[in-house]
């Protein structure tokens, strides 16, 4: 089972702009896996969307799901 992760804004400096991960059961597991791989990420705020829908609770992930990580932008 593989999931695709699309990363936006300043987070790409840490993770690159796309990632593919295997065997991730849910969004909580995804966040801890990312924090393990990229410890700097712990200090970053971002919103998570699964298949283009924002989530606000732990959400199970399925094969081929697309997860977006979006940090806030302030520039104008």
């Amino acid at each position: 089972m593989a999931i695709n992760i699309v990363i936006f804004g300043s987070l790409t400096d840490i993770t690159g702009s796309t990632l593919q991960l295997e065997n991730i059961a849910d969004t909580n597991a995804l966040v801890s896996e990312l924090n393990n791989r990229y410890p700097v990420l712990v200090n970053s705020k971002f919103m998570i969307a699964v298949n283009k829908k924002m989530i606000d609770t732990n959400t199970p992930l399925n094969n081929n799901d697309t997860i977006a990580l979006l940090p806030p932008f302030s520039g104008g």
């Binding site: 300043s10 200090n43 970053s44 705020k45 919103m47 924002m54 979006l70 940090p71 806030p72 932008f73 302030s74 520039g75 104008g76």
Partner: peptide, 20 residues
């Protein structure tokens, strides 16, 4: 709803620092 509280000052760069 997206970003409940503001990020710390050092966390995000603005245009003057990050460029646009």
């Amino acid at each position: 709803d997206l970003f409940p509280v503001p990020p710390g000052k050092n966390e995000i760069l603005n245009c003057a620092e990050a460029g646009v």
